[in-house]
Design a protein around this nucleic acid. Structure first.
Length: 961
RNA sequence: GCCGGGGUUGCCGAGUCGGAAAAGGCGCAGGAUUUAGGAUCCUGUCUUUAGUAGUUCAAGGGUUCAAAUCCCUUCCCCGGCACCA
């Protein structure tokens, strides 16, 4: 049975709460650090991937706490949208999949009945997120500040924010084409399918509607390639479809039934007035736009009534579908027998070459069909063929002379020009459609709808963009690539629709209560609200008291506390307190979010701060974290359940193992594939460290201090330096490598080398355990208590490195011993002998002298081969060694000139005879051989193979006999 | 398509403002310890060798005394791209 981590975790979490470590209070005498993670949307249970980013914020906050900062770490949730509504609906209707999903993730069955209204669902998950995820993971978040976008007080804040946006002239109105569900209103079409049950990969495409005159009515084709109209030779109709006649601006249009409905959403005054079977139109002649030629209507099975208008103009030269279908028509005898088309008419239709493009002949569609081996209409490969030709044509194509005034133009340019020309001539209109079937969570089909008076936040504003971009240069943005990239993102940002109608949860738009503020727009400035939320949460202030002048004063300092008090009835002192809280905690020091936010949340977060707040409140840092993915790099989808319920994983592996996993498994800026085996190795790592500390607590004697103790203290103080350096960049991974790997290895080496000094051990343990606090806080507390140290680690301060105890020579000496040991092993292996004794010869003094001269000259910046040789030859003791001396001088001069004096001094200053003399016992134990150590300078030593001669500083000669 | 990031030893990954690559981990192999546990410890893990020498950082060129690192070309992979916080 596995160790009950849960009990140990709960114990320490309770103590932290008792000690109030998570509560953040203004303390003007202390530097502050405020950080958040972008709050999650309440769409269901989260999975182990989400905890990755959240854990970083807690670990960084804990580190900041132990290095002198007053830390504010608030959390909240984002519930704006239809997630809660649709979940509540499904639960109420007893949807089996939903119920199963909830129960599987740990929702008690007896609670299901309360989850029938949206707000209960939201509150239920607010509880789950806080208790089962964040508290469970030991976060020191200030729970008193928890807020949710659906809380009334939060809504007051959002309304205030929109008033300020309007003041700044950033709210504008204009028509908009939105993806809309007839029941729920606008929905987000994106791969996460938060709002959808199908079609998240769909994109909105802009079609050009082309009008083909037939008598006094028009056949309407939708095309993505208006530049190909010069190549039109016929017109496709699906004979099986019952098309509709609709009126539009006094004209009669013929389109598919689905298109008729879509048109009603996008155009004014469209009415269905009749219908006509597709079959009846076969053989019609209609006048093509732009080229004004009569072209015949032919049947084609690929015309999908659900795509575009269900009618297609045929450009066989450049459209693979058209080419293959035209060939089929020509080869099909039924055209004459069944549709009564004349052979003459069919034969008169021949492709026209209109675009010249690299790598293709006169008819690109034919080329790609041949290349891909397509022989039949309806071949699925046609989809790719179409994409390929389209792409190549768009970028490399040029219009041929046949294209009238557009001849010679690049396709990219001709496309827009020709579209516009036809629109101006009344021969075409713009139409939007989705690339695939999109179904709302409520089950209804989603279409594109025109909304005339849509409100936007004008993120395209030039001045705002420039100021925001400039501010980003002063921020701490990680990773560096995003710091570079964010300027491009800000430039690229256009106006953003900020309100929506329909069945949505959210804050009412303050200027028109038919609208509700949409999800991204109500989550931009909110970090500052965490400073105010505790006053609302404990009832000191009622939402009704949160007036415009209240926020104006506490956030912007406009007006006076007394005036606010008079207006709202809030005590003037409290208003003043809130104002001072805001001034103390803001700006936000770090906002951490998943990589999708590089183009979603972070830009608007920045824009709104810059637009509304004074410069001294603009954010200081952004950190982007990448995902934990499932197999095959799929994002573990939260809307689809997720692989591993979080409480289950916490119980199985222990919270600290998971925290260490997140911190260390990879850089923050790469995706990680979730693997239980990997987490298990981190579990074992934590266990191993616990075991090692346990052993060390009872180890140690009052033995006098030995060189190995100095080494240990040097190492650990160096580690403290590394930890601080790493954490200045919030590099938890580098920090974790030091704490959970290097420090353990050092403790092992210390013990192995016979280290046994209780004072040194306890000093090292204190450093080590404290260094564990940010990432594995529960384990740190447990070990701290076990070691008998006072207080809570989480409340303590990380020791500063004691530079006086860092000793390059001590560390060099141990490395030398390790090198020699590994050389001995190496020689033993290669030589293949079973030695009975081991002899070490340490360097002759003159070689150390050569190096000493070299370093001296290196410091003076005049180290060259000839100069060092000259200098050495003037020393009798060196010169006496003849050729060996000049060769060494040459080697040393070259080698040292590439290095630094600091690195080289220990090489010759180390007293190797003493070092290895005292390590002889250790080496003997390790190798199982009797060990003798001689200086190469000594007379009459045992040296049958004349090895002593080879000994050099940093490289004692080894003889195995 | 636009913008961006990458290809290092079985795997994950350090190293990338040019100055001794093969840190560390995982996996694997051998040994030790231990009465079965995914435990722990030691050793090894590019080739070669009395501790040496050599080859390598996607491929090919170039700059340099010196290149995984800088430049050019080619191939391949990945991410983001707007009502998803």
């Amino acid at each position: 049975m596995a160790f009950d981590y849960g009990k140990m975790e709960a114990k320490w979490q309770a103590r932290w709460l008792d000690a109030g470590l998570n509560r953040a209070e203004r303390d003007e005498g202390k530097p502050k650090f405020m950080s958040i993670f972008a709050y999650p949307g309440v769409t269901g249970y989260l999975h182990v991937g989400h905890l990755r980013g959240y854990t970083y914020v807690d670990a960084i906050g804990r580190y900041k706490r132990m290095t002198g900062y007053n830390v504010l770490f608030p959390v909240g949730t984002h519930a704006t949208g239809n997630g809660g509504i649709s979940l509540a609906k499904k639960i109420a209707s007893g949807d089996e999949k939903t119920i199963d999903y909830l129960v599987r993730n740990g929702c008690p069955e007896e609670r299901l009945s309360e989850l029938r209204d949206p707000m209960s669902v939201v509150e239920f998950f607010n509880g789950v997120y806080q208790n089962e995820y964040w508290k469970r993971f030991g976060f020191l978040a200030d729970w008193r500040r928890f807020t949710c976008t659906l809380y009334e007080d939060y809504g007051k804040f959002i309304q205030w924010q929109f008033r300020k946006l309007r003041e700044a002239g950033l709210l504008i109105q204009k028509p908009y084409y939105a993806s809309v569900c007839p029941g729920c209103g606008p929905v987000a079409v994106d791969p996460s399918e938060t709002d959808l049950s199908k079609g998240g990969r769909a994109e909105t495409q802009e079609y050009t509607l082309l009008k083909f005159r037939h008598g006094d009515e028009f056949l309407i084709a939708a095309t993505l390639r208006p530049e190909t109209v010069y190549g039109q030779v016929c017109f496709w109709i699906n004979p099986e479809v019952e098309y509709r006649r609709v009126t539009k601006d006094g004209e009669t249009w013929i389109v598919s039934p689905q298109a008729a409905e879509k048109l009603q959403l996008q155009k004014d005054g469209v009415e269905i007035v009749g219908s006509i079977p597709g079959r009846d139109m076969i053989g019609w002649m209609c006048e093509a736009p732009m080229i004004h030629r009569e072209i015949p209507v032919f049947p084609a099975s690929f015309c999908d009534p659900d795509v575009g208008t269900g009618l297609v103009t045929s450009v066989p030269s450049d459209a693979p579908d058209d080419w293959i279908s035209l060939e089929a028509v020509k080869a099909d005898p039924r055209m004459e027998s069944e549709y009564g088309l004349t052979r003459e008419l069919i034969d008169s239709v021949v492709p026209i070459s209109i675009i010249e493009m690299k790598g293709y002949g006169d008819f690109p569609a034919k080329d790609i069909i041949d290349r891909m081996g397509i022989t039949q209409p309806g071949d699925p490969k046609l989809v790719d063929a179409k994409k390929q030709v389209y792409k190549d044509g768009h970028h490399t194509g040029r219009m041929k002379p046949v294209c009238g005034e557009f001849a010679g133009m690049r396709v990219e340019e001709a496309k827009d020009r020709m579209k516009q020309a036809m629109i101006d001539a009344g021969e075409a209109e713009v139409f939007f459609d989705l690339t695939e079937e999109v179904v709302c969570r409520c089950g209804q089909r989603v279409h594109i709808k025109r909304i005339d008076d849509q409100w936007f936040i004008n993120y395209a504003d030039k001045d705002l963009t420039e100021r925001t971009s400039a501010h980003c240069r002063t921020m701490d943005i990680n990773p560096a690539e995003y710091a570079d990239n964010v300027h491009g993102v800000l430039d690229w940002f256009r106006e953003r629709a900020c309100v929506r109608m329909g069945n949505w949860l959210g804050t009412e738009f303050p200027f028109d209560d038919r609208w509700i503020i949409e999800a991204i727009s109500d989550s931009t400035l909110y970090p500052i609200y965490y400073i105010i939320s505790p006053y609302a949460n404990d009832g000191r202030i009622a939402p009704s008291q949160m007036t415009e002048s209240f926020f104006d004063y506490v956030i912007l300092g406009r007006g006076s506390a007394q005036a606010v008090s008079d207006e709202t009835g809030i005590a003037s002192d409290m208003v003043e307190d809130i104002r001072r809280d805001v001034l103390y905690w803001y700006p936000l020091d770090m906002n951490l979010g998943g990589k999708e936010h590089m183009t979603v949340h972070f830009p608007v977060f920045l824009f709104n701060h810059i637009a509304i707040l004074p410069e001294e409140m603009w954010p200081r840092g952004i950190t982007v974290n990448w995902y934990v993915t499932g197999k095959n790099s799929d994002k573990i989808s939260k809307s689809k359940g997720g692989a591993q319920p979080i409480p289950g994983a916490a119980a199985k592996f222990g919270v600290d193992a998971m925290r260490l996993y997140y911190a260390h498994v990879a850089s923050m800026f790469v995706d990680v594939e979730w693997s239980e085996d990997t987490v298990t190795t981190y579990r074992q790592r934590v266990d191993r460290i616990m075991g090692a500390v346990e052993d060390l607590v009872s180890a140690g004697t009052d033995a006098p201090s030995a060189p190995i103790d100095d080494w240990l203290m040097s190492r650990f103080n160096n580690h403290l330096v590394s930890i601080r350096t790493a954490m200045e960049r919030n590099d938890l991974r580098a920090m974790a490598t030091v704490v959970y790997f290097d420090m353990l290895n050092d403790m092992r080496w210390y013990t192995r080398r016979g280290g046994d000094n209780r004072t040194a051990i306890r000093e090292a343990l204190a450093i080590w355990i404290q260094a564990m606090m940010p990432i594995t806080p529960h384990t740190a507390e447990e070990l701290w208590e076990m070691a008998g140290f006072d207080g809570l680690v989480s409340a303590g301060q990380l020791p500063k490195p004691d530079m006086s105890r860092i000793s390059a020579s001590a560390e060099y000496a141990e490395n030398l011993i390790r090198d020699v040991m590994s050389d001995i092993t190496e020689i033993r292996k290669i030589a293949g002998i079973e030695p009975s004794r081991l002899i070490l010869y340490t360097t002759a003094q003159w070689k150390r002298d050569v190096m000493s001269y070299a370093v001296e000259m290196l410091r003076e910046g005049r180290l060259t081969v000839p100069d060092l040789t000259k200098r050495c030859m003037s020393d009798e003791n060196i010169k006496r060694n003849g050729k060996a001396a000049s060769e060494l001088a040459k080697k040393v001069a070259v080698e040292f000139s590439r290095s630094t004096p600091e690195a080289k001094v220990p090489v010759f200053e180390t007293d190797e005879a003493t070092l290895f003399g005292s390590a002889a016992g250790f080496l003997s134990d390790e190798t199982g051989l009797p060990v003798e150590v001689y200086s190469a300078d000594a007379e009459g030593i045992h040296d049958p193979q004349n090895k002593a001669r080879q000994a050099a500083p940093g490289r004692p000669a080894i003889y195995l006999e």
